[in-house]
Design a protein around this nucleic acid. Structure first.
Lengths: 157, 157
DNA sequence: TACGATCGTCAAGTACATTGACGAATGGAG
DNA sequence: CTCCATTCGTCAATGTACTTGACGATCGTA
């Protein structure tokens, strides 16, 4: 589809651009030796970066069921991106925190994103990249009472 | 996560913005009576808008297996968004085209997107919306030999 | 002490995808 | 005209990721 068929909706462009960035992110992670990173891991790392949280809290942030969150975390613990921690003395609560390897992965992801954005800056200009960032922040915050939401795993279901 | 924690990567902002647009799109579709629209339908409608195609071609465009495409199409035919057509005299080939209802849905989607973009224009300015569109076109085309790809259904799996 | 609420696990189920085999149809070489 | 390689779409089997609701253990409050 070309724009000879009219203006391309922003939603499609956002989807394409996002898909490209994610494809490139994972390609570079694999090239750098991060072979076992599933797409959903990024959302968990982001949700956990500020500190440990319970499975139930994580499930809520990701907008999935407790069991889905539990299985996701289980596989990330097995891959040593997360670690279980004791959290506040309540034996019911299973605390989840970034492991050292998880922090390194998060740093790698952020480095690659910076790199990809530098590529965008070459195409459209560094100022345009910052303007786009600012405008996207504005429209997203407008929908979330001024805050940024966590991003749930995308669901085609 | 706030930008007190540093610059928010564009990928995350794109994901949030896209998720918001899709959520609003489906909420408005439901409000307008389009009760049975699954997220994956949009990709098929888009891939089919230019004219009929075979199941195998559609599967290729959506980057899914032939069976996945077949099942998706089957449910869209049942919902009267698509129709099977005779295609080119090759009895092996199952042609798939938009139905009248499918065309109306596509028009409804485009109208809603225009509306949502008008909302963005109120927040960041109409010129900023067009600038963003142009810049996104640039960066996406740079990755696809000057063309725009079809957008495959997102897969967090 | 008792009870309602919470946490995380479990079982059962759903949706959507994959791979590879297969039969029918096609087209081209011999 | 025949034969064979290829293509199309369906089928079966399988896998992944998710859901709901029940349940036992734990907690906090009355």
């Amino acid at each position: 589809m070309s724009d000879a068929e009219g203006t391309v909706p922003l939603a499609r462009l956002l989807a394409m651009a996002y898909g490209d960035l994610i494809d490139q992110l994972h390609a570079r992670l694999r090239a750098d030796g991060w072979a076992d990173v599933r797409p959903a891991y990024g959302f968990v790392l982001l949700a956990t970066r500020a500190g440990s949280q319970s499975l139930t809290e994580l499930a809520s942030r990701l907008e999935v069921s407790k069991q889905a969150a539990s299985k996701l975390v289980e596989s990330m613990v097995a891959a040593d991106y997360l670690t279980y921690v004791t959290d506040g003395g309540d034996s019911r609560v299973k605390g989840v925190a970034l492991s050292d390897r998880g922090r390194r992965l998060l740093a790698a992801v952020e480095g690659i994103y910076a790199d990809l954005e530098a590529g965008w800056a070459e195409l459209i200009g560094a100022r345009a990249v910052e303007t786009m960032r600012r405008h996207l922040l504005t429209v997203v915050r407008a929908r979330h009472d001024g805050e940024l939401p966590t991003v749930r795993p995308p669901d085609g279901r």
